[in-house]
Design a protein around this nucleic acid. Structure first.
Lengths: 137, 137
DNA sequence: GTAACTGCAAACGCTTTGCACTCCC
DNA sequence: GGGAGTGCAAAGCGTTTGCAGTTAC
């Protein structure tokens, strides 16, 4: 999603397009791994010295409500934020925790087959595969 | 897994088979939804008045280390415990949060197709589908 | 008998909340 | 100008930790 679209989406829903919100969104989509709230905060502190962790959380909640990011709760007590709302698989390294997305047409096709097998109308999904990434092997 | 097997597994790994551990495991497998630590604690308090939440957590960690249950972190800050270690889909009601498992041969077949498509060796997986359950419709 | 386990309570860490100040529109 | 949003600090809440007393073996 481009800045212009995001701006329009905010305004359409009666939310203000603040510097912080745009910065947070831009940061998330610039990253392939799925950062935690604190990682976002730490990274933005330099460019935006007065930004606060509370604002990061509030913005992430807002982006989720608008349906443009997904929250992924993990066992270690952390929540990660994924800006990809299309069907994909989260490849999670079970050693270092790094996450990368896997998205192919074939996966979509096979997933549709699973859905039609189940006979329900899904509102969303979350698919994790735990493995050992190349760095950790 | 039967009590006898669980007992053997504990002893093989040098852990003691305490009343609390057996009770916690038995409770989890008796439930189709995936209870949280506190739900387990609340349910067992009656039959085991001195049991503590700390013990519940420690036991759940142990069971996970032994590879017989899976922790599922959710966005709402809670962790649920799933005693089914075979491939299945967690059907999560997005309104009431109820979870039920979906497990068929067809899902296993389609999932294997996805895995071979990816060309990795998974150590485990977690598949959630969010939908609206019959009670909430 | 003794090492592991329990139960309790305190500590912890991530997230949420409340509120005065600030900034977008 | 006014109301939504920010930043800060305190509160909240699920989970972990430490330790003295207890239990399995």
């Amino acid at each position: 999603m481009h800045v212009q679209e995001l701006l329009a989406l905010f305004r359409k829903n009666g939310y203000k397009a603040t510097t912080q919100r745009l910065a947070i969104y831009n940061f998330i989509i610039s990253r392939k791994d799925h950062p935690s709230a604190d990682q976002i905060y730490q990274a933005l502190k330099n460019g935006y010295p007065t930004i606060s962790l509370g604002t990061v959380y509030k913005t992430l909640d807002l982006l989720e409500r608008l349906g443009i990011i997904q929250k992924l709760g993990f066992n270690e007590g952390s929540i990660r934020f994924d800006p990809d709302m299309e069907l994909h698989i989260n490849m999670v390294c079970s050693k270092c925790g790094k996450i990368s997305d896997y998205k192919t047409e074939n996966v979509k096709k096979l997933w549709s087959a699973i859905i039609s097998d189940m006979g329900i109308k899904p509102k969303g999904q979350r698919i994790d595969i735990y493995y050992e990434c190349n760095d950790c092997k």
